[in-house]
Design a protein around this nucleic acid. Sequence first.
DNA 1: CGGTTGCTTGAGATCCATCAATAGGAGTGG
DNA 2: CCACTCCTATTGATGGATCTCAAGCAACCG
Lengths: 260, 260
Amino acid sequence: MILGRIGGTAFTPRWANDAMSELFLRKLRHGAPLQAEDEALLSCLVQGARSYEARADIVPQGSAQRMLSLVLDGWACRYKLLANGRRQITALFLPGDLCEPFGVMPHVVDQGLAALTPAVVASVPLGAVQDAARRWPRIAEALWWDLLVAATLEREHIVSLGRRSASERLGHLFCELHVRLTMVGLADEDGFDLPITQSDLSDLLGLSAVHVNRSLQDLRQTGLLALRGRRLTLYDIDRLRELSLFEPAWFHPRRSDALP
Amino acid sequence: MILGRIGGTAFTPRWANDAMSELFLRKLRHGAPLQAEDEALLSCLVQGARSYEARADIVPQGSAQRMLSLVLDGWACRYKLLANGRRQITALFLPGDLCEPFGVMPHVVDQGLAALTPAVVASVPLGAVQDAARRWPRIAEALWWDLLVAATLEREHIVSLGRRSASERLGHLFCELHVRLTMVGLADEDGFDLPITQSDLSDLLGLSAVHVNRSLQDLRQTGLLALRGRRLTLYDIDRLRELSLFEPAWFHPRRSDALP
DNA sequence: CGGTTGCTTGAGATCCATCAATAGGAGTGG
DNA sequence: CCACTCCTATTGATGGATCTCAAGCAACCG
């Protein structure tokens, strides 16, 4: 429930500049027809990778924001800590995810950003992204698409918390993660790595950790999935989607040139 | 639970062009130092007002989006209808609210837009807004600020659904509405008009209508508020904020020029 | 080996949903 | 003005979903 206080450590040399932006680009390609020059330009924006331990704050609640965070490795989250000590995770960020809409002006963040696992996070200067978007239409399109997907995820999160049962929330989350991780090549057909704790899941889904545990057991006993160690195996994705009221259609907003 | 099928009626002449954008401008002034020329330009974008009956769909779920909707009068909402018939309202729109972030490209909307009360809604051409923002920095700043506030509201909605009790959700909503309505001059110090039904509130807050009713009675009996007819009176806003874990600070992201 | 963290299980309490019935209020037509 | 209807608000009773507290277990790690 309580987040650790360990800050980021120094620059991590194992991330060469190309490798850093690879997952990010892989995702953006779903949103716009990026050319080699667009990708080269985007790569240049990604700099200053730092490592964080699990539970470390990346951007503390209430601090001023001038850079965007891009997750290179590990999982992170946006969260809010309430006065009564409860925590709600409002968004989950996977490798390749940009943690804020690209064009916001500098501002004070109302919610913090924290690592859920050991993570490597790069900083992207706000102004540079805005400039790139202003000058290169395909980059702008890709970034707007990314923003659109992020907003859709957030709204679906609201729907889950408001109108889905505990098992449905879990199932829906797993379906969503499967799609997102597949987009960046981090899932295979029947599952993926789930590196966060059940307590994190509970803070994400608005449940207690105990109930997450029991609902997971329900899903296992129904034969829909297995969760051993960090590996989540999905035995029957179609049935899981049906059970969770998951509609993959909303996931890929059509590109403008594809609109009727 | 089920939305009506009545479409919009024809153009409503009672809205002159100036009056149409007045509330919208009033809100944006909180986000950027708009000059007369900026406001004039923004006013020109707002066109094509239409009236809708309560419960009418404004933009149905699954349709293509090329225009932005601006609420001139009445309350509206973004909602999702689940396969099992449940409805979740993901955002509430008040007079002066732009219903989508300004810059999104045309896309298929995953969630519909509906009137909750009789409403008048104008359409704003997407391209025109983007052009204006590109050319006039203050307009861009105001619109980004608006987007930022909308995103913050959405995240706070997630926190409510995930980690606040029924009474806290209601209290938090009323505090939020009080701030938002005050920004456009539609609330006075001790309350405002609440024109939606308890059933709408339940779909917004992820509760049952019966439980909304009971939680409202709790709040009344605690002496925090009164709700007679459509008028909501707040007797002790500070105490209500405390009880609801409402933090008004996040509401006004600082302008870029005010950052340290 | 002891300490820590995360997972699992049980029992009891609480919050909230559902079902069903009644009451109030606004509009409508006679 | 009354009877009627629809919609919304209210109330009661009951069951279910989920929470909390508490304890035990398993894995990992220095």
